[in-house]
Amino acid sequence: MEKLQMTGKANNSGFEITATINTEINRFATRNYDVKEEEVDSPVNSWIISAILYILALIFYAEIGLALDIWASLFILLSAFAAGNILWSVPTLLRKNSLWKQWHACEHKLVNIITRNNPKFPCLEKLKQTSPYNSNCGSVLIITTLLFNLYIICALPFTGYLLPIILNFIGVIYLVAIFARSLCPKKYPVNKLTFPIMIILAGFAALILLSQQQA
């Protein structure tokens, strides 16, 4: 039997689902999804800002091990930017029942009920009972990378400037996640992106460690 693949996107007005079976693709959206286009799917308002910060962060990453003292002040500044970027999304995420969160749950429940109960006919009660958790959601990528980031920080013997390093590290991973998702949300599933990103980050961590040992 051909497998049904589904990707979704939610905003304040509803959500859309792109369903694929073999070469057949169809888009399904809730009533008002296209009416009011509010970009609340990504916590960052513009991915361009994220991209610039991301590139800057990577440059500073390479520099940190080579000339920590010279770059320290700029590094702290960048960390503040990165932290600010995270803080930007906090009010939206902490609001208990924002429309975006509700539609996001609906999107996950729909994907879960269709893929798990296939080919049974769904019913409303079952939809309510279905889990809102979906392992392919972008939020999992963000949380995963943040956790991995924490793991690297704990594993590396940093001596000075710990706070900016932690702040920047979290900021960079956050930006990588947002940037990767905004660039290719549909082409590549989130779980396929996670591993390459982690490899790149591990490479940077190794670079820092190597530079510190040489100094």
């Binding site: 509700q102 749950a105 958790y133």
Partner: peptide, 11 residues
Amino acid sequence: AQKYIFTGEPT
């Protein structure tokens, strides 16, 4: 995180 931060209870 997804249950308590990224999703809410729909109407």
